[in-house]
Structure formats: structure tokens, C-alpha cells
């Protein structure tokens, strides 16, 4: 067997680079068409609201710019969505509403495929953790009617996947936000003392309502003591 070559022969690199340059820049060439169709297919499937709202001419221009200029580093085809979002945030001239819609749809997708395992919902818990797939976002539109322009007021929402694989977008109240922040800050936050820590800002009734709703819908998950988790290491000195 031949010894491994570490670098491509220069002639090969030059020949292949010329082929790729043509595919990136000439949309009418067959590989140029295929690249653009592949990206368009993924974007339409991943971002139906964004692609439906932007108009075909603007979408084509965005895809053209993406293919010509974006240094995509993720090999998986489904990560075209992630690469396009990164490109759009930095390089595309989009309205704040369009960017917000794109980011919202990406967060839905990310929660749907997040590799984390979500424990079944339960209200009988001693300790809490935040759903490991949760993304906390500020939305200026109603997720139930995302195509309708919002009122330019940021409202907090949580996007997460349930144990039964549903992806939910939950508007957060002030008590919700306080609970989320508290649970995020503490690993396996114990319920004992939880309300005492937050009572100066909200009533016990408000917190209890928020906690119950979060547990039922799966925003909060039952958690073990840190020392009981399988990957916990002994941190004592």
C-alpha cells in the first residue's frame, strides 16, 4: 500500500477549485443549479414561515449570496439551516422581523432535534431542573400567529421539546421567568426554600401556579440530587 499523502497534489487542488468556483458562481450551470436547489429545499423545510414571507426573488438572492460567500463548516445537510442562520445574522440585509422569524424557526428546529433526553413530566418532585432542550427567547410576535407583525415589545418565551417529542412555545410570565432563572442557576434546585428565595418578587400563589404549569407542560423536569446523577464526579477536596 502507498504511504499516505498528507496534501492533495497541487494540480488536483487547482482543477477541483476551478470546478467548485464555477458551481458557486454560475447558477445556470448544472452543479450550480443543484447546489441552489439543495439549499432551497432545506430552507423551505426548516423555515417555512421565513421562506413563505420573504418572497421568491429575495429568497433566491439570499441563497445566491449564501452559496457564493458563506464558509459552511458543518458537513451535515440538515445543518444547512444553521449555516444559513449564521450567514443571515451577519451578512444578509433583512428586516428585524425577518431575522426574528428565522431565529424563532431555528429554535423550534434545534429543540426538536436536541440530543438531550427529556425525562417524563411529573408534579411529584423534590428537585427541579430546566428542560434540557429549552431555549429562552424574546419574541415580538405571537407564536400562534407568527406571520402577523408584532408590536415591537419583547416578550419572553420558552421553546422546548417534551418527553413525548412535542415542541412547545410557552409565553413566560414574571413568576415563570424568576423560576427559570433560579432553576438555571442551581443544578437540581431543591423545592425546599425555592419560594422563600423568590417571594420578595412574587406571591406564593403566583409561584405555585407557575411551578405547576411548568411541571405539567414539561418546562421543568424532575431532577436527582447532584450526587445521584450518573456523570457526577466527587468534587470534595
Amino acid at each position: 500500500m502507498s504511504s499516505p499523502e498528507t496534501a492533495a497534489p497541487p494540480a488536483m487542488a487547482m482543477e477541483f477549485a476551478g470546478f467548485c468556483r464555477a458551481a458557486r458562481t454560475i447558477g445556470s450551470e448544472i452543479y450550480g443549479q443543484l447546489l441552489r436547489e439543495n439549499v432551497a429545499d432545506v430552507l423551505r423545510a426548516s423555515f417555512p414561515l421565513f421562506t413563505g414571507g420573504i418572497g421568491s426573488a429575495a429568497l433566491d438572492a439570499a441563497i445566491e449570496a449564501f452559496i457564493q460567500r458563506h464558509p459552511a463548516t458543518r458537513p451535515q445537510f440538515h445543518h444547512i439551516a444553521t449555516e444559513f442562520l449564521l450567514f443571515a445574522q451577519r451578512q444578509l440585509v433583512l428586516s428585524p422581523q425577518q431575522i426574528a422569524l428565522l431565529e424563532y424557526e431555528w429554535a423550534l428546529l434545534a429543540a426538536e432535534i436536541d440530543p438531550a433526553s427529556v425525562p417524563p413530566a411529573s408534579t411529584d418532585v423534590d428537585r427541579l431542573s430546566l428542560n434540557p432542550t429549552a431555549r429562552l427567547v424574546l419574541l415580538q410576535f405571537d407564536p400562534a400567529r407568527p406571520a402577523v407583525a408584532g408590536d415591537a415589545v419583547d416578550r419572553p418565551h420558552a421553546i422546548f421539546r417534551t418527553a413525548s417529542h412535542q415542541v412547545l412555545t410557552l409565553p413566560l410570565t414574571l413568576p415563570d421567568c424568576l423560576l427559570v432563572e433560579h432553576v438555571r442557576a442551581k443544578e437540581a434546585a431543591p423545592l425546599v426554600g425555592l419560594f422563600d428565595a423568590l417571594m420578595p418578587c412574587c406571591s406564593a400563589v403566583e409561584l405555585q401556579t407557575s411551578l405547576t404549569r411548568g411541571l405539567v407542560c414539561g418546562l421543568f423536569c424532575p431532577s436527582q440530587r447532584p450526587s445521584e446523577t450518573p456523570h457526577e464526579t466527587d468534587r470534595s477536596c
Binding site: M1, S2, S3, P4, E5, T6, A7, A8, P9, A11, M12, E15, F16, A17, F19, C20, R21, A23, R24, Y31, L34, L35, N38, V39, V42, I67, H70, P71, A72, T73, R74, P75, F77, I80, E83
Partner: peptide, 30 residues
């Protein structure tokens, strides 16, 4: 190939089939 010096292109692209490219490809396969 699916990538050039800019990044991934998300398609199966043909590469030049030349004898002088074979050692490089064999090394990559190894």
C-alpha cells in the same frame, strides 16, 4: 467531494480521476 477551500457545498461533486491523485486518495481512505 462535498467541500472546497471556502466550505461545504452540500452535494456530491466529481473530482478529477487522474493516476497522480490516487496515492493521495488512498492515504485518505486509510
Amino acid at each position: 467531494a462535498a467541500r472546497d477551500s471556502t466550505g461545504y457545498l452540500y452535494d456530491l461533486l466529481p473530482v478529477p480521476r487522474r493516476a497522480e491523485n490516487l496515492p493521495y486518495l488512498a492515504g485518505r481512505i486509510a
